[in-house]
Amino acid sequence: MKPENRHIEPLLWSLFGAGGMTIAFLVPAVILVVGILMPMGLLPAEALSYERMSAFFLDSWIGKLSAIALLVPGYWGCIHRVYHGMHDLQIHTNEKVKLGCYGSVLVLSIVTVMLVLFG
């Protein structure tokens, strides 16, 4: 590509692909555990206790990486479809709207990583 014709879509699409992957593979089980099994009392009482959850997601490296992998790519996957969905619904967008969409997800991603690493 000539430099003047280059655009950021390939990056945004890659992030969307990564998010599509994590939502497809990780999120169904997480919703099942957090949103359905736990409220219905089908999990042992201590399963999602503060001690266990904070020890795993905030103190262990594998837990920290899991939390980031579960959340961050998903934000990008969702916002990509939201942005393109606006085009599908013929809602007029411009560079500012685009910057707002992807920019807020960038901020959310940074905050998530900071919380997990230093929270």
Binding site: V27, Y50, M53, A67, Y75, G77, R81, V82, D88
Partner: peptide, 26 residues
């Protein structure tokens, strides 16, 4: 198929809120 992202976006914000609360304490 595309609308699924709206639910996933809201749910991931819910999970983000969970992370914030986990950091805040028991």
């Amino acid at each position: 198929r595309e609308a699924s992202c709206v639910f996933n976006l809201v749910y991931s914000l819910n999970l983000f809120a969970g992370l914030v609360q986990l950091v805040r304490g028991a």
